[in-house]
């Protein structure tokens, strides 16, 4: 029980990932696939951000630190959350919105040509 509770974030991210992956592969509607893709990507973000969490730490912005003249006060690493996963995930979010845009554009172009968003109908027209 403790094993499950201590890592609940990780269990949830796996669940989200499975939902997203299932939607990407099994859904017939293209927009649904794209939604699955977004869920899949956010699941990874959950994972990374969970890595960055630190018990008893504050947000990764150094308090009262304006300019490098006042750095006499030593900064303790334990006080602040791990910033690296946050940075990585900023990048990942932006990348995912880029992918989302392109995927939706392709969906629209497909709809314009085949007048359908259902995969099987499109494949039938291609045949």
């Amino acid at each position: 029980m403790e094993y499950i509770l201590a890592k609940y974030n990780y269990w949830i991210y796996i669940l989200l990932m499975m939902i997203g992956l299932y939607a990407m592969i099994a859904k017939n509607n293209l927009v649904k696939k794209v939604i699955g893709m977004s869920i899949f990507q956010t699941a990874i973000i959950v994972f990374y951000v969970s890595i960055g969490a630190k018990r008893g730490a504050s947000i990764p912005i150094i308090a009262h630190g304006h300019g490098h003249d006042v750095i006499a006060t030593a900064v303790s690493a334990a006080e602040y959350a791990n910033p690296l996963p946050h940075v990585l995930m900023l990048t990942a979010i932006v990348v995912s919105v880029g992918t989302l845009g392109v995927a939706l554009a392709v969906c629209l172009a497909i709809y314009r040509r085949y007048n359908s968003l259902e995969e099987d109908e499109i494949l039938e027209q291609l045949r």
Partner: peptide, 15 residues
């Protein structure tokens, strides 16, 4: 990153 951001870059927001 946490301890050196101010000395290296003078930016308090580590992110």
């Amino acid at each position: 990153f946490i301890t050196n951001t101010l000395t290296d870059t003078a930016v308090p927001n580590i992110v």
